[in-house]
Design a binder for these strands. Sequence first.
DNA 1: TTGTACGCGTTATCAC
DNA 2: GTGATAACGCGTACAA
Lengths: 339, 339
Amino acid sequence: MATLKALAKEAGVSIRTINRVLKGQGYVGGETRRLVEAAVAKLGYRPNLAARSLKTAKSHIVAVLAFALDEPRVAALAALEQHLREAGYLVSVTFHFESKDDAQGARIVRELLGQNPAGIVLVGSGQHDPHHLRHVLPALLVPLVAARMPYVVLDPRGEPARACDAVKIDRGQGVREAVLFLARERGRKRIAFFGPTDDRTRLDGYEAALRELGRKPLLLAFPGLDVKAQREAGRQLALLPARTRPDAVVTHADPIALSFLAGLHDRGIRVPEEVALVGFDDRPAAALAWPPLTTVAQPSAEIGKTGAAILLRKIAGERPPRGGWSQILRTRLMVRETT
Amino acid sequence: MATLKALAKEAGVSIRTINRVLKGQGYVGGETRRLVEAAVAKLGYRPNLAARSLKTAKSHIVAVLAFALDEPRVAALAALEQHLREAGYLVSVTFHFESKDDAQGARIVRELLGQNPAGIVLVGSGQHDPHHLRHVLPALLVPLVAARMPYVVLDPRGEPARACDAVKIDRGQGVREAVLFLARERGRKRIAFFGPTDDRTRLDGYEAALRELGRKPLLLAFPGLDVKAQREAGRQLALLPARTRPDAVVTHADPIALSFLAGLHDRGIRVPEEVALVGFDDRPAAALAWPPLTTVAQPSAEIGKTGAAILLRKIAGERPPRGGWSQILRTRLMVRETT
DNA sequence: TTGTACGCGTTATCAC
DNA sequence: GTGATAACGCGTACAA
């Protein structure tokens, strides 16, 4: 590969001059400039980034540590990458999907720190993993903070046990809007919630909305993340007499909504006529369901963009703004055919 | 960050000795070794990878260029990353989702080459993009080959117009197995195909299976990738008299199958009793559909693993084996409730 | 406006 | 066994 020295020889000028032409700083004679540019084109010169990094003591790599990547997260990651690329950074991705082994996570963070990246991005866990929020994520943050490594967490899906700089989604607000939509636009009277109860973010929104409506919360028993059990829960709904049966169900996530929906179909309950249904996340499966699932969409592209912006400012050494770096983004209700 | 020099000072030995201890090559006195190890632990020494890359003229980065990332591809990418990580490489990812602009693709490849990565991985387009296979992908391969950059294409979803080293899926075989399963295990008599006809890979498998069965192909008119039109096609099926109506439909991909399924539901056609249905890819939406969709699964983890193996051997400078680097992997039929 | 020379941290060659 | 030391390619202070 061509080096600056070879380039200087080819163009018959000094390295310093080449440098000025490439950086576009300072004045260079027009003829000299043309000579240099011709040499660059001829030799196909590319700066050696390792040498540059060594000299400037700056890494041009931002490391992403991903604990789960469903489609909304991939979209967020793509947006993040695009913005960081425009700022001159290369994005590396390390996958750590089996989050059960806490020690391995620590090892991976150590390895990432060993790469001396300019910053680190953590992309939160999959759907509903309290263990991750309470133990895994906080443990990983400690060495980052200790090393003063600029970092940002993308959508931790809940409240981590340790305060951190993150781009968050206002899930409570999303659920609240969905409930109010069902009550006001669709005239539903008995709006239930189906999902884990140890994640307060969505439940708070649900309860807030019911308070606004002057109604009592209606929590369907949630059997856990087992798909078959969730489908069975949908079937059970048919056993309730139509008069006391919920006429709308807001769920914790799209997969949960779709499993529940399958149970409703099994028993011939008509959706949305008898029971309306709302998911959360707007995964591809939601739009492809029958009927297409109304769901609360997270602003994936904005998550990535905001995360990139925060990270770049932290890398630049800016002081945190009042209230800290974290930002909370709004969701959007995607109305389809289950409501 | 601690350097070798600081380490040498701390341990009271020369840099060369430190190096021997860290690399474990040559003999070092036991006492000296302990001294060095203590210093490493105390200063938290991490080798500067930029300096190492500069000296060894080897990059430790493998660049991935992704044109689309649905869940099966993310799984493949995760497997690829894990294997490359074990081999000491860092995986960078560049997203290029808007593949319409061919010039931008070329620019991104130029930029990636500018990073001087050890190798490059191309992760193929989304579902059914003939333009990508005929023009975009071949155009991107040219500079890679010209620069003698080790590369591998992960699952190009069809046959690119230009021969390339790739991990491929035997889609034809997958479709063939699905058809034979429907005929032999499920006793279906009129098995139709629903999907684009300009992609021969799946159609060939379909036709081969029907030949084996001594039957005539039955191609449903395909309206293109518009979801609503696909759903309408499902509705149209109801208009056919039950005696001539297909009793099974094999489709080109899961999203297409699910849109078609919605149309069947709209008209009250029972699945699988009246019409069986098979998808392709095993996306999350397939398992979450009602009824859960039988589909042909691609071996995502194996795709990633195989891709990593090929790339590592190309990076190591091995000569291509007889028949070239490319490998074709088998699919697996996931039998669920639509058959 | 242009040229020279040094140092970044690592690796590896060469003497001792 | 161990210690100096040169070189990788780039960026820039300093000199001309």
